[in-house]
Computed example of a mutant assay.
Amino acid sequence: MKDSNSKANRSDEQRRYYRRVIRYVVGVVVACGLAFGIGWGLSFIFPVFLAKFLADYPISNRERFLQLLLAMVLTVLIGLSVSMGVTHYPMILLLLVGLLMFYAYYLFLDPQWNFFATILLIAVLLLPYLGITNSGLAIYVGSGLIFSGVMAVIAFAVLHLLMPEEELQQAANSNSPELPSQQQRVQEAIKALIVAFPVVVFFYYFQINGAILTMVFIGILSLQITTVKSIKISVFLLLTNGVGGLLALVMYELMVTTPEFLFLLALMSLVCLVIAAQIYQQPEKAPIWAGVMSAMLVVLGGVISSDSKFIDVSFYARIVQIILASAYMILASFLFDLWRSRFK
């Protein structure tokens, strides 16, 4: 009887595993096909968001869909509102940006608000920066973020509707992780702000053209510093961005030699299959492989569906920018780890 129950459990786990892998591969590849084939404003964000949704939320429900939809629209509107009225007052603008960054770091420590905090940080860093020089460009980018994000939420809902996991929903709700204390969340948010805000001030002050990706990438990486369990953050950043950048480089060179759209989709299918297998086979290492996929899609997708209105830099310039951003965050996190160990 026990043997039959264990065999049934193993078969259920296998079906669940295959379902999640198929959902991930089909979703990301179709998203890449639509984003790279049609190419609307900031279309490369669509597969990046969808890949993150599928990796972070293998089990979902209606409330999750509504929360993601609200996160996409509301946070971008907040970023747009900051960029519209105070761009002529640099000190007030930087103060508002800093306060919203702190709030994003604080929210990020609650798993239910992870995505909301991520999009809030991107919108707050990017849209006011663009609004300083061109308010029309800020609106263009903001609408592109909203459209790509809403597309990702719709695709995420459709994939879960076609391949649901309703039988696991009750177990997922009962195993919610314990949140850190309010004081701990404030301390971690302050630490991340100390690391990232000087870079933001530097870019805002000097208005360096073509370096927007570096600033936004530093902001996204700084979210990882807030995670209390992630002590060796430098190793995490080195693995995810190093492997993701290398994958993007290899795929870019292969596409140069064989510039066929079907070849791109086949190559993307192979990469998604390998990464999805790693994500769902080893859940404890899922953040690493999800970070690898995000880094690859950001660099590669930004070049394939490049739009001169947004960031007009070459593929290798993007690689250099992300290397610089990663190096800064790795050094900063290493110094924090060293300071913490000495303090203790």
Rank of each mutant, 00 (worst) to 15 (best):
C272W: 02
V150Q: 02
Q281Y: 06
T214L: 15
L137P: 05
L70P: 00
Q169S: 11
L270Y: 01
V216N: 02
K229S: 15
F202T: 01
P90C: 11
V48C: 13
G27N: 05
A295W: 03
G144Q: 03
I208C: 06
E284H: 10
R10I: 14
Q112F: 11
I212P: 02
Q170C: 08
L107M: 13
A35F: 05
Q282M: 12
E188C: 12
Y24W: 09
S81T: 13
L193P: 03
L96F: 04
P180E: 00
L159D: 06
F310I: 14
R342N: 10
S308V: 13
S333I: 03
Y18P: 00
L70I: 12
V216I: 14
Q182H: 11
P58L: 10
L265A: 08
V82C: 08
M101P: 00
K232S: 14
W289D: 06
L99K: 01
A35H: 07
K2N: 14
F147E: 05
L120N: 03
L130A: 07
L297C: 11
D12Y: 04
I330S: 00
I288F: 14
Q321S: 14
A317K: 01
D307S: 08
R318W: 00
A8E: 12
A152W: 09
I59L: 07
T75C: 15
M293D: 11
L335K: 00
V76C: 08
V21C: 14
S148Y: 05
L267E: 15
L213R: 02
M72K: 03
A290I: 07
P259G: 06
M251P: 10
E260S: 15
V26I: 15
I78Y: 12
R15A: 12
I220T: 13
L66C: 04
P164W: 13
V292Q: 01
V243F: 15
R19K: 08
L265T: 11
F53A: 03
T118D: 11
L300I: 06
G149L: 06
T257G: 07
L95K: 05
V30Y: 05
T75R: 00
Q182F: 09
V256T: 15
A31S: 13
V250P: 13
S341N: 07
I45A: 14
R10Q: 14
K232E: 13
L96W: 02
D3T: 13
D312V: 02
N134A: 07
Q169R: 13
G144R: 02
V313W: 01
S143W: 07
P259N: 13
L273M: 15
V30K: 03
L267V: 09
L77H: 07
F49Q: 04
S222E: 05
A277P: 01
L120T: 07
L262Y: 09
G142D: 06
G144N: 08
S294K: 00
